[in-house]
Computed example of a mutant assay.
Amino acid sequence: MRNSEHAGFQEAYNMSVKNKVVVITGASSGIGEASAKLLAKNGAKVVLGARREEQLKAIVADIKGDGNQAVYKVTDVTNPEDVKQLVALAKTQFGGIDVIFNNAGIMPSSPISALHIKEWDAMIDINLKGVLNGVAAVMPDFTSQKHGQIITTSSVAGLKSFPGAGVYGATKFAVRNLMEVIRMESAQEKTNIRTVTLYPGAINTELLNTISDTATRSGMDDLYNAVGIGPDAVARVVNFAVDQPENVNVSEFTIYPTKQG
Rank of each mutant, 00 (worst) to 15 (best):
A27K: 03
Q69I: 11
N42P: 09
V21F: 04
A40Q: 10
Q69P: 04
I59W: 01
I24Y: 05
G49W: 00
K37F: 03
V17F: 07
S35D: 03
G65A: 11
I63L: 03
E53A: 15
G32E: 05
N68T: 12
D66C: 13
G43S: 12
I63N: 01
I59D: 03
V22P: 00
K57N: 14
V46I: 08
I59M: 07
V17L: 12
N68C: 14
I59C: 08
S35V: 05
N68E: 14
I24A: 06
N42L: 15
D62F: 00
I59P: 04
Q55T: 12
A36E: 07
S16Q: 11
S35K: 00
S28V: 04
A70F: 06
N42S: 13
V60M: 10
V23W: 07
V22D: 00
G49A: 04
L56Q: 00
V21P: 01
A58N: 15
I24L: 11
N68M: 13
L39G: 06
I63P: 01
G49Q: 00
A44S: 12
N19E: 15
R52F: 07
G30T: 09
K37M: 13
Q69D: 13
E33R: 13
G30V: 08
K45Q: 13
S35Q: 02
V23S: 10
A61K: 14
L39A: 11
S35C: 05
G49K: 00
N19H: 15
N68L: 10
E33T: 03
Q69G: 06
A40H: 08
A27D: 00
A58I: 07
R51S: 03
N42M: 14
V22G: 02
L39Y: 08
N68D: 14
K37D: 02
E54W: 02
N68Y: 12
N19S: 15
I63H: 00
V60S: 09
G65D: 07
A50R: 01
K41P: 05
L38I: 09
A40K: 11
S28H: 05
L48W: 04
G43C: 12
V21T: 12
G32M: 06
